[in-house]
């Protein structure tokens, strides 16, 4: 009787200890006790190998060189290499306003900064702005016939990086507006940040805009 009582008592203490170890999160040394019985170790291994292979494939798609990242919601431009931020600059991006095209009932310009992935296509020093039609129409002026009347030097800063369809990263005459959505789609930076960006970015440097 005493023996039965003792074995019951020791069994109860053992059960209590096992419960305590499991609930405390202390790792159990034997791997087979960690895995529930239903898990097939061969299947688990296959899945782990597959996961690792896919992870490697995705990692290989990540940019290895520095890239430019533009956050249009918060108006910031970053230069990043992997997870490392090499530069964080206050910027100005597209205002999102619209302007009707005269003589075209359905046509309009939408002043958004384009989103997606682009590359630096050109690097210019002392760029001259060739004013597009909307720049005249917006001011209530007539669109000039001569190309020479469209040229405006000195308004884009010392450098400009073109990323296609007439969009540039350039300087500004209005640094107080940095951090706001005020542009016609281009990305503006202050002089110092623009200089750093010009030095770091090459033709082909990826630009990701979101």
């Amino acid at each position: 009787m005493k023996r039965i009582f003792l074995s019951l008592w020791s069994g109860l203490i053992g059960l209590l200890l096992v419960t305590l170890v499991q609930s405390s999160g202390i790792p159990v040394s034997d791997a087979s006790t960690v895995l529930p019985a239903a898990i097939d170790p061969a299947l688990l291994h296959t899945l782990q190998v597959r996961y690792k292979t896919l992870t490697k494939q995705l990692t290989q798609l990540m940019p290895t060189r520095p890239y430019i990242l533009v956050d249009t919601a918060r108006n910031h431009l970053y230069i990043k290499r992997g997870d490392q931020v090499m530069m964080d600059a206050l910027a100005s991006t597209g205002s999102g306003t619209i302007l009707d095209k005269p003589g075209d009932s359905k046509g309009q310009w939408i002043f958004d900064t384009p989103r997606g992935e682009f590359t630096v296509q050109s690097r210019l020093t002392n760029p001259v702005w060739v004013k597009p039609d909307w720049a005249f129409i917006e001011e209530g002026l007539e669109v000039p016939k001569s190309q020479a009347d469209r040229l405006e030097p000195g308004v884009l800063g010392e450098y400009a990086l073109g990323f296609g369809k007439g969009y540039f990263i350039h300087g500004t005459l209005y640094p107080r507006l940095l951090g706001k959505n005020v542009t016609h789609g281009c990305i503006r930076l202050n002089d110092d940040d623009l200089k750093s960006l010009y030095r770091l970015a090459k033709v082909g440097t990826p630009i990701i805009i979101f």
Binding site: S95, G96, T97, I98, L99, D100, I110, I137, E138, E139, G140, K180, N181, V182
Partner: peptide, 16 residues
């Protein structure tokens, strides 16, 4: 979106 009116000449508040 706010529409720019060249006749009015008033600056439009950009979207944010």
């Amino acid at each position: 979106r706010r529409k720019i009116d060249p006749v009015d000449g008033a600056e439009q508040t950009p979207i944010s």
